[in-house]
């Protein structure tokens, strides 16, 4: 569960102060699937960094699973990231010349798991995203959709409380994008996983239950989406 109160982030560029985030407050409960939307420059990347514990706010409070995070130092933040956040990026960010299995094992390495634990959990995560048969492939031997699945498996492997996805379909064609959205929905629906999607694409955002819109560092709307698009179903209808 995320509780954000009056989050602000100020960057100093030369003599100018840029208020990337200006007093954002919201609560995201466990098991929710939420989209954070906004055009570029709206502060959504900054918000994502703070939610993902990649950065700390200049002002305000951020409580993650009951733990105040805003005042943690760098190494404590790294620990929280490893334990509680699973990242999915637009460009997948897989390590080249490294098999899918080893890519997925990476977060476990820093979590201090034994080799056996790492392998078992990574295999399980890859099977969960439907890539059980391609564990030994290197990223350059996989399609874009498959690479993003590996990245999702990597985000899942430490069993984080939140999956934080930054434009996860941005680098994929629409058909593969639908598959990935379907995977996120199934993680949310079947496993009760909290999923936060950061996107500028309203079509992607409409796959979630709740949409938070940002503009100029302010939250301009925070609404339930009563009828989310079902990614798998949409495709079924086409057939």
């Amino acid at each position: 569960m995320i509780v954000a109160e009056n989050l602000s982030k100020v960057f100093t560029m030369g003599e100018n102060e840029v208020r990337a985030l200006d007093g954002a407050s919201f609560t995201i409960n466990e098991g929710e699937m939420v989209a954070i939307m906004g055009p570029s420059g709206s502060g959504k990347t900054t918000l994502m960094s703070i939610i993902g514990c990649l950065d700390v706010p200049t002002d305000g409070r951020y409580v993650l699973d009951g733990e105040p995070v805003e005042s943690l130092n760098e190494s404590e933040l790294a620990q929280v990231r490893g334990r509680k956040i699973g990242f999915v990026f637009q460009q997948f960010n897989l390590l080249a010349r490294t098999s899918a299995l080893e890519n997925v094992m990476l977060p476990q390495l820093y979590a201090g798991a034994t080799m056996k634990e790492r392998t078992e959990r990574a295999k399980k995560a890859l099977e969960r995203v439907g890539l059980g048969a391609r564990m030994d492939h290197n990223p350059n031997e996989l399609s874009g959709g498959q690479q993003q699945r590996v990245a999702i498996a990597r985000a899942l492997v430490n069993e984080p409380s939140i999956i934080l996805a930054d434009e996860p379909t941005g680098a994929l064609d629409s058909k593969t994008g639908v598959e990935i959205m379907s995977l996120f929905q199934s993680l949310h629906r079947d496993n009760g996983q909290t999923v936060i999607l950061v996107t500028h694409d309203s079509y992607v955002a409409r796959h979630t239950d709740r949409i938070i819109r940002l503009s100029d560092g302010h939250i301009v709307s925070d609404e339930k989406n009563p009828s989310p698009i079902k990614a798998g179903a949409a495709r079924d209808e086409e057939h």
Binding site: G52, L54, E74, S75, A78, Q79, R81, G82, R83, I85, F87, F89, N93, L95, L106, P107, Y110, A111, R154, N158
Partner: peptide
């Protein structure tokens, strides 16, 4: 740089 960012994102500390 990107690899370092990723390692940090998945929990690598500064010391690691």
């Amino acid at each position: 740089t990107k690899e370092i960012g990723l390692r940090k994102a998945v929990g690598a500390s500064k010391n690691q």
